[in-house]
Amino acid sequence: MLRRTIIRILIFCLTVWVAITVNFIIVRATPVDPIAGILGRMASKGQSVQGGAEIVAFYRDTFALDEPWPVQYFMYLRQLLSGNLGYSLAYFPATVGDVLLHAIPWSLGLLLTAVSIAFVVGNLLGALGSWRRAPLVLRGLIYLSMTISAVPFYLLALILLYLFAFMWPILPTGGSFTVGSTRDFSLATAIDFIRHAILPVGSIALGLVGFWALSMRGVMTTVLDEDYLMYGRVKGLRERTLFLHYGVRNAILPQVTALAIDMGQLISGQVLVEAIFNYPGVGTVLFNALRTSDYFVIQGVVLFIIVSVSLAMLVVDLVYPLIDPRITAGEAGR
């Protein structure tokens, strides 16, 4: 178990290192001086860049841009390790780290809530749909959710926005709080916060439910043929026991693995949803950075996404033995 954990963590470190290195090479492979290029483009568009010359000097200095590549690479790694991702061009003198740190909690909250809701609802729906004594309505719901899942997140977001913010204006169109409201630990603040989160969370969760329902139904179908379900039925166990402890409990295992694999796709889908609702998360930061060619912020976000996806997969891998006792088979007494 310990050995497995250590190997898994080493793989995680390797993944992140490769990502960082690729990030470094791509920038160096660009034939133009990216910083001067960006500053020049911004200036030509009439945007004023405060302290442009200082930024150039700072980067040449910090990242040893006049030195050969190996030295640059070493400096780059050193800066990264000390948490320095560089400065935002659009929000100078804010660092990329500052910008990300403000955005990450919002994104994480949004993602975890949406994924949890979709995972629970979708798996329950799929499992019930495959159960022979389940009402027919459930089967209909699976097909409905599958259809909805075929629609991209951003389109769902636009549809929800149109329906619940314009046609029946019961929910806010964007942001995370009502502009100008005071943020304190009161019920009103909490309600305001939840009202702003419903549509972004809803469009991600709604888009995912069908996916989970469909795959759960597939896994459940094979689990239903297993000997332990037949044996349990002959034992006269209740449907509820059979469904939850014998059916779902076994079928959920591959679903947890799928959860880690889909994380990457999910995060990229979330970017557009956040942008549509102007939700102050990493997605909106990336969207704005792309518009303003805020080069270092883009790099920072990409790095953040890679690290968080790898981290999610690491966590799932480490948690998996806790839910599947067979994985720890080599160990006595566990």
Partner: peptide, 27 residues
């Protein structure tokens, strides 16, 4: 009652034997 053919998956693989006895008594 029933004694099945010996098969790996005749008992629920992710539930302890005690819990599987418990299911019978509880239900």
């Amino acid at each position: 009652a029933y004694v099945p053919q010996a098969a790996l998956n005749i008992l629920n693989p992710v539930r302890r034997i005690g819990a599987q006895f418990g299911d019978m008594v509880a239900d």
